[in-house]
Design a protein around this nucleic acid. Structure first.
Length: 457
RNA sequence: GUGGUUGUAGUUCAGUUGGUUAGAACGCCUGAUUGUGGUUCAGGAGGUCGUGGGUUCGAGUCCCAUCUUCCACCCCA
């Protein structure tokens, strides 16, 4: 029974062309991570749900993919569980889930291996994660994250290093049309405090973050609805109206904060991060302090940052921040971490849109051996062996098909050379090497073929 | 989770107010060309019209459900 195959919603295949480009991005990021001293880590696709739930807020819990228990998953369920609905039923039939991000599994790893890891621990991790979101532009249910985190130190040198890496990665990708927005949860808390929204901090953040999307009026009216009074809005207005250089904005904000300890604290963290970044040799003109930057999962506690393209309509392509006590929920207190996450899929779309992928679309095979008959095919395998031993990527058409077919294969696959092997060649021990682009061809011994191809490399 | 949108050949898409046998381009296969690809020419194969119901003498076309695509919201990479 033939059935049309299909993919689960929000998932994709990556064909060879796409993989070349994806690998280009991933390799570039990986190189930079390594250069900054990060070590690789991988964790399972699945985690126990106890590890995942409660770490991403209510929204996040709903977006977790749950894996149904194997076997008779109903064996532990009775009628009462069923009657009480999914909240009661769910924990009895599913105990594992697909990972939602790389940070929480990393925290789990650090806790489980705390005696082995050397702090500060710097690790990078490039793996798919899954979210049961409704797919949309630049949003998939399976997508790759590309994280680098440093845990076990409070130093703001880490923040600066991560921001430096961001700039180095995009420089290597020849992508320049982006801005890094930075802020600090403590600065936001300070703002909430002076605006009288301290009690509603998380809702305050969510609303504030929408500023560039829905505009000031709507933000203000939403803030009013959570109890921010007119004086508070006026203060906020003056903060949002701040212009000029990063440092001068921060200085004015410090005056507005007055005695708000947490706010002052946040400001000095931002300043120190910027200072460290310039000591590392990076201009801070790509970085702008943005007091409306409030996003981030609920676990961020200190510096936060996100990168957006400026000339392409695209969401955040890189984001990160500091989380003071992520390992705390797993029983390891006092470990602070800070990380950054590159969204490969969105970077891909951005580079594609701006035509920034290198033109040299890598093709693997340098030469295709084209045998005319069974005897030539046997002969070609020995030549293939010599070519490969010489380090030349080469392949043979696996059946003695018509030359038209074999040359067509080389043509479509973009293999630049073919080596024709027929009875005449075997007799002479000289083979016809043809350059596909021009159609020029000549006969050489296998040694000369190898020399010629090596010169081409 | 809310609102909208999409689905016809391998791919991109036509298909009139419901009316005979559902078309095109590209791709694929064969031949022109028994030792020469990308060009050209000739011929050919390929479709349960997303799926399941319903209305009708008759459904690719209308209705309902469901899945899928894309977009916006919530939220997020």
């Amino acid at each position: 029974m033939a059935q049309k195959p299909s993919l689960p919603k929000g998932t994709r295949d990556f064909g060879p062309e796409q993989m070349f480009k994806r690998n280009y991005i991933i390799d570039t990021i990986k190189d930079v991570f390594r250069k900054y001293g990060f070590m690789p880590l991988e964790t399972p696709a699945m985690e126990n749900l106890s590890v995942l739930t409660g770490k991403y807020g209510d929204e996040g819990d709903q977006l977790l993919f749950r894996v149904l228990n194997s076997g008779d998953f109903l064996s532990k369920v009775n009628d009462d569980d069923y009657a009480e609905g999914y909240k009661s039923l769910s924990p009895k039939i599913t105990e594992k889930g697909l990972k939602y991000d790389l940070t929480v599994p990393f925290a789990r790893y650090v806790v489980m291996n705390q005696t082995e890891v050397t702090f500060p621990f710097k690790r990078y991790q490039i793996q798919p994660v899954w979210r049961a979101d409704r797919p949309q532009k630049g949003r998939y249910r399976e997508f790759y994250q590309c994280d680098a985190d440093i845990v076990g130190t409070n130093s703001l040198v880490c923040e600066a290093e991560l921001l430096a890496m961001v700039q180095e990665v995009y420089k290597k990708l020849t992508f320049d049309a982006y801005q890094i927005a930075i802020s600090n949860r403590k600065v936001l808390e300070g703002i909430a405090e002076v605006c009288g929204a301290k009690e509603e901090f998380s809702r305050f953040c969510v609303i504030l973050d929408k500023l560039d999307k829905i505009g000031k009026e709507k933000v203000f009216s939403e803030l009013e609805s959570i109890g921010v009074n007119e004086a508070g809005l006026k203060t906020l207005d003056s903060i949002l109206s701040l212009t000029g250089h990063n440092i001068s904005k921060l200085d004015v904000l410090a005056e507005i904060f007055g005695t708000s300890e947490i706010g002052q604290n946040g400001i000095s963290e931002v300043k120190e991060t910027l200072d460290n970044l310039s000591l590392l040799g990076f201009l801070t003109d790509k970085v702008s302090v943005d007091f409306t930057l409030a996003r981030g999962l609920s676990y961020y506690t200190g510096m936060i940052y996100e990168v957006k393209p400026t000339t392409v309509k695209m969401g955040t392509i890189t984001a990160g921040g500091r989380y003071d006590n992520l390992t705390g929920v797993f029983g390891l207190q006092g470990i602070s971490g800070v990380g950054v996450s590159f969204g490969i899929d969105r970077i891909y779309d951005t580079l594609e849109e701006l035509n920034l992928f290198p033109i040299s679309e890598a093709k693997y095979s340098k030469v295709l051996l084209v045998p005319f008959d069974e005897e030539a095919q046997r002969h070609s395998l020995q030549l293939l062996c010599q070519l490969r031993n010489a380090g030349i990527a080469s392949e043979v058409y696996p059946e003695p098909a018509k030359m038209k077919k074999q040359l067509g294969y080389a043509d479509k696959k973009g293999i630049p050379f073919v080596l024709l092997i027929g009875s005449e060649e075997i007799k002479q021990q000289r083979y016809t090497l043809k350059y596909m682009e021009t159609g020029n061809q000549d006969m050489f011994t296998i040694e000369d073929v190898i020399t010629n191809l090596q010169e081409e490399l």
